[in-house]
């Protein structure tokens, strides 16, 4: 049939995101457009790519490396998106990387001047992965606009580290690095807030999850996948169909991903 593990669906995605890590710790950098992702990326990696004041400047995954306390990190700058519901190619790129690229940590960089809209993305990312650090960027502009953000309270509500930064002036980068380091060490543990939906949705999710585990095992976040299925997400449906094709052609004994 020509359908092999490598040529279809999720494994194709995996392949796409199976970057040469060389034992480096992989970090994903997500966030709304124009919140300073690329600037933070530059600040962390010391790369000096030009960053423009544009929504949509980064449409591909830019990669860079840095070292902190002898540990090597590979950081991936994802396209800026408002959500992860995959309405466009760039959203899909960002979402697929967080979900299937298995980054050790996902940093969500937010614009402190319009936190509400940025928190949408934070909540969506926290649905996919537990290891999240939130960067409150552009703190200087928030201050200028007379906005005050209770960082401690936000941290409590979200259950993940929240770090105020001014990426342009490289402020807060030290604390961010330390947090990344401690999180990979297990010194900082997160307890991310998980959104509960209404009962109907929750019970459907449970039922779907039960079946999904039979197909996918425990490798992926089945709750999130179930939610996407309910949401009618075509890309996800196709990926799951592909896996079934592989499984049935191999028989149940065949391991999906070695």
């Amino acid at each position: 049939m020509g359908l092999t593990n490598q040529s279809t669906g999720l494994s194709l995605l995996k392949q796409k995101f199976d970057i040469e890590t060389d034992n480096k710790t992989v970090i994903a950098l997500a966030g709304n457009p124009n919140t300073g992702k690329s600037t933070l990326f530059n600040a962390l990696t010391g790369l000096n790519q030009h960053t423009g004041n544009w929504p949509g400047k980064t449409v591909t995954n830019a990669k860079g490396t840095f070292k902190y306390k002898g540990k090597e990190f590979l950081i991936v700058d994802l396209p800026g998106t408002y959500s992860l519901l995959a309405n466009s190619t760039d959203e899909e790129v960002a979402r697929d990387f967080i979900c299937f690229g298995n980054p050790e940590i996902t940093i969500v960089i937010t614009d402190s001047t319009c936190l509400e809209r940025n928190l949408n993305l934070v909540l969506q990312v926290m649905e996919i992965t537990d290891k999240v650090i939130v960067c409150l960027n552009l703190m200087d502009e928030a201050k200028r606009k007379g906005l005050e953000i209770d960082v401690k309270k936000l941290e409590e509500k979200l259950g993940v580290p929240v770090i105020p930064t001014i990426a342009r002036e490289e402020k807060g980068i030290g604390r961010l690095l330390e947090t990344i380091y401690k999180m990979t060490n297990g010194e900082i543990k997160t307890n991310p807030f998980k959104l509960k939906y209404n009962e109907q949705i929750e019970s459907t999710v449970k039922e779907i999850e039960k079946e999904l585990v039979k197909i996918l095992g425990s490798q992926f976040n089945t709750r999130w996948l179930a939610l996407r299925l309910i949401d009618g997400d075509k890309a996800i449906i196709n990926s799951i169909k592909d896996i079934i094709t592989i499984k049935s052609s191999k028989g149940i004994g065949g391991k999906l991903y070695e």
Partner: peptide, 27 residues
């Protein structure tokens, strides 16, 4: 309305958290 419901829940929660932690000093 399942799909809409999911999206709305996320947005409402984001709105609520933002309201709780942000104070506007100088209107």
């Amino acid at each position: 309305s399942f799909g809409d419901n999911i999206v709305t829940s996320i947005y409402q929660k984001a709105e609520k958290i933002a309201k709780d932690v942000v104070t506007v000093n100088d209107e």
